[in-house]
Design a protein around this nucleic acid. Structure first.
Lengths: 169, 169
DNA sequence: CGTGCGTTTGAGCTAATTCAATAGGAGTGG
DNA sequence: CCACTCCTATTGAATTAGCTCAAACGCACG
């Protein structure tokens, strides 16, 4: 898994998201990116040179169509995340994040009630617009309330109903 | 100008953005939208039926390419807004919003230091992840500090440096 | 058995919210 | 032209969710 992040001039950091196996980075294709990508776990990736890739796409309408579909999907995800950032409480953010991760693992055949979290607490905080302390506190609280179990390297979601209730969009 | 918004099940509202003359809605093209679009000022718009439009695009790679470019642009805007929502203070949000509006007017030849705000304070609040009171208070404060002047239907940005400083990304 | 780094926990603080009251127009009718 | 209503915006006071600062914990690694 890799982390996509940006650093604000004053040192604050925004983690735009996490990419996993199968994800395509660079859909937006702007002239110049301003994103830092860092591996959180051993990662194999496939790199396309900008120019040749643009040429390839130009000759393959099907491919372009797929890319556009994908970009549209990313856009709706981005919109959902905006709603999350702007209008939800810390607890809802954390619950929602965990469920999103679970769903994404499920999509690549890693479906399980145990969710690996290769990113650190600070990464989660910077992704959800919270502080590391708040993330840590909420995870311990959800653990105490038996909504989940904190395990090494991740969490086990022991009460999906409760979490889904919190995350309800 | 039109307002794009979504209602959360519990009544909270998220204003995803505002579209102005020249903007294209529906780039993401998902099967089903979940967005409410409402006019804030007299608006003329051009509607394409989904099916015929998809067919048209299928036959015009150039067009698809333009749409994809545009979607990529929207995606970067969405990412910027996420950073805004997650990692900036209320004052920074408001300053940034006003400057963004000014820039968008400029792009369509309406460049001026006076920025029309056809949306209400509540709309701005729901867009920035704030409350109406906070938006109102900050606008009055920026007015008192001579960074801007509140005028009927909008604001006049009297100290761009100050605002740009606040919005600095 | 230390050392270093990420996480957890505690205590106090503050930016923004909530709750509540007031003020400012725009539109309507007498 | 004034009185009244409605709706949005502003202002004030009190509250709080989440932050900041600081300390302790846990564990992997040498």
């Amino acid at each position: 898994m890799v982390r996509l992040s940006r650093l604000l001039p004053d040192g604050r950091r925004h983690v735009m998201g996490f990419a996993m196996v199968g994800d395509f980075l660079g859909l937006a294709l702007p002239e110049r990116y301003n994103v830092t990508v860092e591996a959180l776990s051993p990662t194999a990736l496939c790199r396309f040179e900008r120019r040749p890739f643009a040429n390839l796409v130009a000759g393959k309408p099907h491919l372009l169509r797929k890319l556009h579909e994908r970009a549209g999907y990313e856009l709706t995800l981005a919109q959902d995340h905006m709603t999350l950032l702007g209008r939800r409480t810390a607890e809802e953010k954390v619950a929602s994040f965990l469920l999103t991760m679970r769903d994404r693992y499920a999509l690549v055949g890693q479906g399980s009630v145990t969710v690996a979290l290769p990113m650190g607490r600070q990464d989660i905080a910077d992704h959800l617009g919270l502080t590391i302390e708040t993330v840590s506190r909420l995870l311990t609280r959800l653990d105490r309330e038996k909504a989940l179990l904190i395990v090494p390297g991740g969490v086990r979601l022991t009460n999906l109903d409760r979490l889904e209730n919190l995350a309800a969009a």
